[in-house]
Every structure is written in C-alpha cells, then in structure tokens.
Design a protein around this nucleic acid. Structure first.
Length: 410
RNA sequence: GGGUCGGUGGCAGAGUGGUCAAAUGCACCUGACUGUAAAUCAGGCGUCUUCGGACUUCGGGGGUUCAAAUCCCUCCCGGCCCA
C-alpha cells in the first residue's frame, strides 16, 4: 500500500517535465528512489550575485520535493568555486570575492529561499554547506592527484571550451580546474545524487567520474531543464530582459511575471509551481493567455510572499495596468524647499531626488517625451515648480509603472 | 624570449588628426498600438544648461599640435603566432 503511494509520488516528480536528463538512466534512478534507501542529494550555486532568480527557484523546488520524500538534501554554497567563476564568461573568471561578500550575498539568498526550502524542519532540514570548507584545504599535491583523473581532451569536450578555442578566445588554465572542484564537492560530501541545470551537466559528470574513481560509487546526476521560451528558445535571463529575481517585492514580482513573453508560461508553470499538470494544460488552453499569466503570477507571488500579498499584488496590477488606475500605495516623497528660488523643487529636480530619473537630463527627456504626469495630467514643462497648494497628495507617474505620491510637510 | 595585433560608452563593435559626445547591434528609457507583454512603429540613451552652449569621457601618465579616441614617449593589461 505504502509502496504504491511512494511510487505515485516519485513518478509525479520524475514525469512533471522539470527533470530532463538522468545519468546513468531514468529507470535506474527511479529504482533507487523506490528502494527505500535514504539518499543524499545536493545542489550547488555560486554566490556571485545578490539575488537568485527563478531558474534557481525551479531547482530548489525539486530539492525540496526530494526532501519531502525523506531524503537528505544539501544546499551547497560555492564560496570557493565562486572565487574562480564558472568559465561561462571571461569577465567572471577574474572576479574575486571576499568572504564578506559571500556571506552578505548568502544572507540575502536565505531570505529569498525560505519560502521554498525548509531550513528549520526538526527531523530533516535542508542542510547548508560551503565548499571552501574542503576545497580550501586541498594542497597542491592533492590537486594534482585529482587532476590526474582527467585528460585535457576530456576537458576540451566541454562546448564552452571548444567554442572558445575555435573563436581564438582565451581559456585560462585555472578554468580547467572548475569541473574538478565541482566534482570534488561530490566526493567531499559523499553524495548520492547531484541536481543541476542542463548547463552544468559537464561539471556534474566530472564529479561522477571522481566518485567512481575515488569512492567506487555511482553518483546520479539529474539535470533540470533551463527555463526557456517555448517559441523562441530564448533562455530566461537578465540579458534577454526576462530574468526574474527573487528579491522583488510582491508587486514587482507580479509585474515581472506578467511581462514575460507568452512562450514562458508553460515552462514557468511546470518548473516554478507545483500546480497539477492537468490543471496547467487547462490554463494553457484559456483563450486569453493573459488570464493564464495572472494565475501564474498570483501563484508565484503566493509562494514567495504569501496568499494575502498575492491577492493585493493582483489587484494592484489590474488597477494599475489594465484599468490604468493609480495605485493607492505609491511611496511618498517630499519635495525639497529650495532657498535660492524661494520655492519648492521643480518637477525635474523632484524626479531626480525621488529616484524617478537618473539625472536632470534624463528627467528633462522624460518630460519632453510626455512620460510624466501628475494625477493624470501630462506635465508639459520640467521647470514647473511643485507647490503645496496645487500638488499636495497628488500622484506623479513616470513611465508606465513608476509612481510617487507628492507629500508636502505640514 | 621573439614577432605581431589589440585595450573605445552597460556589453559587443566601428572610428585612426578637425565634420566625434564617438557609427551600428544588443540591453535600457519614453510614447503609440495591444492582452501587460512580445512583435511593430516613433523618439531617446555622459553631466549641467539661462537651450546659445559649457564641462568631463575612448587602459594610466606625459608630450606634439591652433586642434588628439586618432600622432609620439612611457607604463600597465590582454589575444594570436613562433621558440
């Protein structure tokens, strides 16, 4: 009886569509999961940014799923590997981070992931580890020993290196070490399963090799799909303008989801929510994709900020964008008194000091382009001064989504 | 060690004495259109401005010139090839 139930849960997870590649095979992994053994899973991330994004969230949700199945799970902070940088781009290769940077970043991460990872479970909490703990202790001889398990040709098989070689771009020797380090993480933690994105398979397999050679153990590598637009195959990323970071507040997160291209809908539903697949397909059939997007946005905000926040964010969004109403929770800002002119700031200065424009020039441009309005009335001149009589309590709108309430001191 | 090419705006990448605040693409901003978007179209995208212009930018420093991203010197950094 119990087995049937487990089997159903395992299959639900394996077949959802988030997990796309299994090493050695999906069947063997499934068998292992059903064997009743408690497995040790891990997923790693380099703390190179202040905020995690939805791609991380997708993978962490899977980690949590396995935790709920009773397995031991480790969230590995790659503080050591982060100092070298995954060789995905050259600039990252030379960023060195201090211990303080790493810790500051991770403090943010923890806050961002508390909604999806259970750090405080009494029986089986998500464990945190830092890979500097073991990587920092290896001496040169040990590193050489590790390196002797691989050939240069094997390293060159990695697409990234191959591509760079062909393009005549540099490959630094220490970058070859990256897969080695990530691989050693597996050995040091003696894990049974590594979860990663498909872009990390090469590194994870290096760990599989090391596990076999050093421990005589077969590590599973389970890769999640990267979140990508179904129509264009464009990855969700900051540089494509579709990156969604987990440090957004409820309103901004809602808006960020709503501004995703339609092709991102299904991947996000599948990867970043646990809404039933059949239900997801139902949503995908809705006549207006916007409605499905609202459901998605609502669900994601609910996951990260709670149900109430999701409701409010949704109402704000509909009022602000669909009905073009002005949100009533706009942050307030007080115009400064300018002694020299014996008056309050003009519109441009106000925009700059309230953070609505980067510079006075930027403010001027926005006004010239009719992008600034106060209570729905377009501001024609940037030199118009704000006065308590005319503007107190009114809402200034800059662009489509930036609002500030003008509040004078009484 | 030798040779050679190079370091330009958030990124990629033109420009090689004045017409350069520096083409173009991406990213970004504003407007129009929409389903919020995407796509498309229009405009913008160093700072300040009394809108005439002023000021600061092309790896660092120094120089030549009426005039330098562009020429020279020097330092720093990198690619490629040969050894």
């Amino acid at each position: 009886m119990k087995n049937k139930e487990l089997e159903a849960q395992v299959d639900l997870l394996l077949d959802r569509g988030v997990l796309s590649q299994f090493f050695p095979t999906k069947e063997e992994f499934r068998k292992e999961l059903l064997s009743g053994k408690k497995l040790r899973f891990y997923i790693g991330a380099d703390p190179t940014a202040k905020a995690l994004h939805l791609g991380h969230a997708q993978n962490l949700l899977v980690l949590e799923d396995f935790r709920k199945l009773g397995h031991e799970v480790i969230f590995l902070i790659g503080d050591f590997t982060g100092m070298i940088g995954d060789p995905s781009d050259k600039s990252a290769a030379r960023v060195t981070q201090t211990r303080a940077d790493v810790e500051a970043n991770f403090a943010q991460w923890k806050k961002q992931t508390e909604a999806i990872l259970t750090y405080d479970d009494a029986e089986n909490p998500v464990q945190l580890k830092y890979n500097s703990e073991w990587l920092g202790k290896l001496n040169f001889a040990e590193v050489l020993e590790l390196a002797s398990n691989f050939t240069v040709q094997q390293m060159l098989e990695r697409d990234m290196f191959d591509k760079r070689l062909k393009e005549g771009r540099p490959i630094y020797v220490h970058e070859f070490m990256y897969p080695l380090m990530q691989g050693y993480d597996s050995v040091a933690m003696d894990v049974d399963v590594e979860l990663c994105g498909t872009d990390q398979i090469f590194n994870a397999l290096a760990g599989r090799t090391l596990m076999q050679k050093l421990k005589g153990k077969d590590k599973f590598v389970i890769a999640t799909t990267l979140i990508a637009d179904e129509k264009t195959n464009m990855l969700m990323s900051k540089s494509n303008g579709t990156g969604v970071f987990l440090d957004l507040d409820a309103n901004d997160l809602f808006g960020a989801i709503m501004s995703q291209p339609d092709g991102m809908l299904r991947p996000l539903f599948i990867g970043c929510t646990r809404i039933d697949i059949a239900k997801v397909e139902e949503y995908m059939q809705l006549e207006n994709p916007r409605d499905a997007k609202i459901i998605l946005a609502h669900e994601l905000v609910r996951i990260f900020h709670g149900g109430e926040a999701a409701q409010i964010a949704q109402e704000n969004f509909i009022n602000t964008f669909s009905k073009k109403e002005i949100p009533d929770d706009a942050p307030a800002y007080t115009p400064k008194w300018v002694e020299m002119y014996d008056a309050h700031e003009n519109v441009m200065d106000f925009m700059v000091s309230a953070g609505l424009a980067l510079s006075k020039g930027d403010a001027r441009r926005k006004v010239d382009q009719k992008g600034v309005s106060i209570d729905g009335e377009v501001v024609e001149s940037g030199t118009m001064t704000l006065s308590p009589d005319l503007h107190d309590g009114k809402i200034m709108k800059v662009g489509k989504r930036n609002f500030i309430k003008i509040v004078f001191e009484k």
